[in-house]
Amino acid sequence: MDPRKLRNIKKAKNIAFYGIIGLLAAATLTVLIIIIGYILLNGFSHIDVEFLTQEPRKMGKEGGIFSVIIGTLYVTGVGILIATPIGIAAAIYFTEYAKEGKGVILIRFFTEILAGIPSIIFGLFGFAFFVIFLGMGWSVISGGLTLAMMVLPTLVRATEESLKTVPMSYREGSLSLGATKWQMITGVILPCCKPGILTGLILGIGRAIGESAAIMLTVGGSLRVPTSLFDSTRTMAVHLYTLASEGLSQEKTYATAALLILIVLVINGAANLISSKLGGSNGN
């Protein structure tokens, strides 16, 4: 073939290649902006003091989402409170205690597997185990425990990543002074990992707040402010589902969705900020 023609074909191919890639990447970004923008624009004007502080009336058709916010905080809080110490301890085990071996590979493997289980399965399990088998009923505690299992892998991973960045020399320095392993971990290593652990925690909270399928099957949908761990309640994500599927109130639905998006934005921003600002502080 004519070499000039060949070169032209090559050129056209190049343009098409970069064009398609750029287009798809731009499309992805556009979709993100549209989703966030559309929901914020439509919902933001309906978020006001009344919406945040009043209890829902007529199944959420009127009033605010106060009890739903409290329910969200309650369930998320319980879940994170249970998962955090376990997650941190598990990460400590992997980096500080575990010796290479089949057993460790296996428990690592199952930690990854747990991360891949879909939330509806967690919901089914939570319903069968916590709600029915342990008799906790549809309650904050059933949901909290289910959530704890769901966010555990996130916490383990984030903590482990940051434990790995602590220089070996800190461990040596500490042990050489006669510290026990645990004194070394609590006195030197964990303080170095605060940003990493915090990032994991925030991401865990984000996942917990956005969760709906598992919560629906374990917490129920009561619209009252929960007063005990064994009360049923409703979280914002579940509330949004109910409003959307039953078409109760366009306004309230948009407002709830906007609030959820806002929380996600703040949480991701915070996590990003912490990890980029303090991530390099262990350099030595």
């Binding site: 301890a89 085990y93 428990i107 199952f110 747990l114 026990t180």
Partner: peptide, 29 residues
Amino acid sequence: EKAIEKVILLSAIMATISVGLITFFIFRS
């Protein structure tokens, strides 16, 4: 120290226990 190590090991296998429990209860039901 030994007790702490046990607690930490228990935390590490919590995910594995969870997967086990989930499997068991889904199948049982």
